[in-house]
């Protein structure tokens, strides 16, 4: 097993799938200013995806670049967390998905800036600034929606209830994660859970939302076990390069 390739794919695929989904908001946001904000976050995610996937391609030594990895892999070859695959839904669903992810991305990127690999550390430094901003954005919206009206409170609480079971993938501490930590170029995400929990508690306290009763977590994304949605999402995203395999764009 090529742990480095696997690990970088996880980073890249999370960002790619979130970026792909956030791009769907462009032109459809609840207010013009927020339309621009969501697209900005989506652009950051696509940018991170490109950096991680390019690096993954090099780690693989099979000559695949960012586009080969993004457009010519089948769903079971993807390594994104199931959380990232959850549908955009309404604005509250997207914000809750983003918050749960950002609260993980911030400590992740912070830890990766200390990577023994200069390139990983450099990408992490850039990403850390972005994810800190994303968290600020998603967190303040969680508070606004949680505290806002009865309707918004109920809606975003429901988003949270539905999405929380899917965070498990983010903290999987398997062989790949252990190798990354042992060899010093990565971090075992299992160690990030405490930071994530306290970020969540902090947000809950301020927004008046509550933690739903604990339910079993859905785990599988890192092993290529996905939700039904992913193959639709990829079919749409990959349609042109798959239809015209010889074409350059």
């Amino acid at each position: 097993m090529n742990a480095r390739f696997e690990y970088l794919l996880r980073l890249g695929d999370d960002a790619l799938i979130l970026g792909q989904q956030l791009g769907l908001w462009t032109g459809h946001g609840p207010v013009l200013e927020e339309d621009i904000a969501l697209t900005n976050i989506g652009l950051d995610q696509i940018g991170q995806a490109r950096a991680w996937l390019t690096m993954a391609g090099r780690a693989e030594h099979a000559g695949r670049d960012e586009d080969a990895l993004a457009f010519h892999r089948n769903p079971e070859e993807f390594r994104c967390a199931q959380l990232c695959q959850q549908a955009n839904g309404h604005f509250g669903d997207t914000i809750a998905r983003q918050f749960l992810f950002d609260a993980y991305a911030v400590p992740l990127h912070a830890a990766l800036t200390k990577s023994s690999d200069d390139e990983i550390a450099a990408i992490a430094r850039k990403s850390a600034k972005e994810s800190a901003y994303h968290l600020r954005h998603s967190r303040v919206w969680m508070v606004r929606l949680g505290d806002g009206t009865e309707e918004s409170h109920a809606k975003v609480q429901e988003s949270l209830d539905r999405l929380l079971p899917y965070v498990g993938d983010l903290f999987v501490g398997d062989d790949v994660a252990e190798a990354a930590a042992r060899e010093g170029w990565g971090v075992n995400p299992a160690t990030l859970r405490d930071a994530w929990e306290s970020e969540l508690d902090d947000m809950l306290a301020e927004s008046g939302l509550h933690r739903p009763e604990a339910v079993p977590e859905q785990i599988g994304g890192r092993r290529g076990i996905h939700t039904e949605k992913l193959s639709y999402l990829l079919a749409e995203m990959q349609v042109l390069p798959r239809t015209y395999p010889d074409a350059q764009w």
């Binding site: 609840p30 606004r144 806002g148 309707e151 918004s152």
Partner: peptide
């Protein structure tokens, strides 16, 4: 229209 509840929530908050 789908964003109305979001705008109202932000205002209320």
């Amino acid at each position: 229209d789908n964003g109305a509840w979001v705008r109202e929530a932000a205002q209320a908050h």
